[in-house]
Nucleic acid binder design. Structure first.
Lengths: 212, 212
DNA sequence: CGTGCATTTGATAGCTATCAAAGAAGGTGG
DNA sequence: CCACCTTCTTTGATAGCTATCAAATGCACG
């Protein structure tokens, strides 16, 4: 696909992808997920083994970084935009490092869901609807958890009504406040939503409409 | 110290520092260590709670990012330099995420020591001498480990002759190959050094000269 | 409707955090 | 220069969490 002999600047125009790195043990580690509008810098030269893998149909545009940046220097605003995007990527990477460094499995999953809600969530009343393009394996790989642990955390959140799921990819976040608590972002939800308040002890999770 | 009401660009001219973020539970998380020559971008605006803390006497220069970048746009090569530094920071952050995501305590410590060797190590024969400016607590905090686990891993590496220590801050990496194996970078050391070869089973670690 | 893969669920082992206490290291004041 | 004190580090014992192994269930696709 993309030439791998030099640094690449890739623009993801449409779709969703994962940025991965091949590990010495031949497995792969997910570094980040990317969505429409993202810019991805691939320093093949200083860090071999990087790769972008599509999670669904994508439209991407790639340039050799060297050439692109040389041209961009003629137009500082372009360079500035690339800088801003890189700084955003850095911020996301640091936030991820925090997740991985000192958070439990449930905190990582809750934090992940909130991060996805920010990026690809669609409001649905007081809740947020998510269509996750990545598998449980990818999620676990990205968060430093096994697929089984990811599944158990989803089950727990579902049993407690914080989220609802339908099929493999559709997730509805019923109570962002409670999720933020689970993610360790705050200590107590100020206003428990109807789902959390009711289903914490005994109620079954509400069925989720698959949309039309 | 530095104004915290707007994004800052900080240049560390001399010394060593840690970049931290204050967590909701009032504890702090170490995001990165920085050394002479590093550029650090502090997005106070989009991510409150960041801070730079000196680990030893430092000389630092800080600018409001907005003003600096406006001026830098007039000189593309400057902007380009800042971009390159940011991309380097991104790469380091991603590597750290890998460490935190799927590595054991020993792998994290070994990887950390190799990373420090690259940045502030001084060759000493076939070994590398490190003067660590940060405490065990900072190391653990940075790697997502407790201070006790860090200490246990140091002890193990010391008992096996891979490293020698003297006092709190002086560490000598006796066998980079073995350390790389411990870090999970490769599977077998091609040429075990004198220390590793001899002390793997029974020899005591060699005393380390404190240098004058 | 059957096949294959992803997910879920269950039981157990291993690793690291936590709790507790002893032992160095460095700094201070006598 | 030495005794003391504070802080950091090391060491030990235990509990908790997650990985691992194993098997069942569910979902998508042909």
């Amino acid at each position: 696909m993309l030439p791998k002999d030099c640094d690449q600047l890739v623009f993801l125009a449409e779709g969703a992808s994962k940025l991965i790195v091949h590990m010495p043990d031949l497995s792969e580690q997910v570094l980040a997920f990317h969505f429409a509008g993202d810019m991805i810098y691939l320093p093949h030269h200083s860090q071999p083994g990087l790769g972008i893998i599509a999670l669904e149909d994508c439209r991407i545009i790639g340039f050799p970084a060297k050439d692109f940046l040389e041209i961009a220097e003629l137009e500082p605003s372009v360079l500035r935009t690339i800088l801003d995007r890189s700084l955003l990527a850095l911020q996301r990477s640091r936030n991820k490092a925090i997740r991985l460094g000192r958070k439990s499995a449930q905190e990582r999953i809750a934090d992940f869901l909130l991060a996805m809600a920010d990026r690809i969530g669609e409001p649905e009343g007081n809740a947020i609807r998510l269509i996750l393009p990545m598998s449980r394996r990818d999620i676990g790989n990205s968060l430093g958890l096994t697929i089984e642990t990811v599944s158990r955390q989803f089950t727990e959140l579902r049993d407690e009504g914080v989220v609802s799921t339908s099929g493999r990819s559709l997730v509805r976040l019923n109570c962002l406040g409670e999720l933020a608590v689970r993610a360790g972002h705050k200590h107590h939800a100020e206003e428990p939503c109807e789902f959390c308040a009711g289903s914490k002890n005994d109620l079954q999770p509400v069925a989720i409409a698959t949309a039309d």
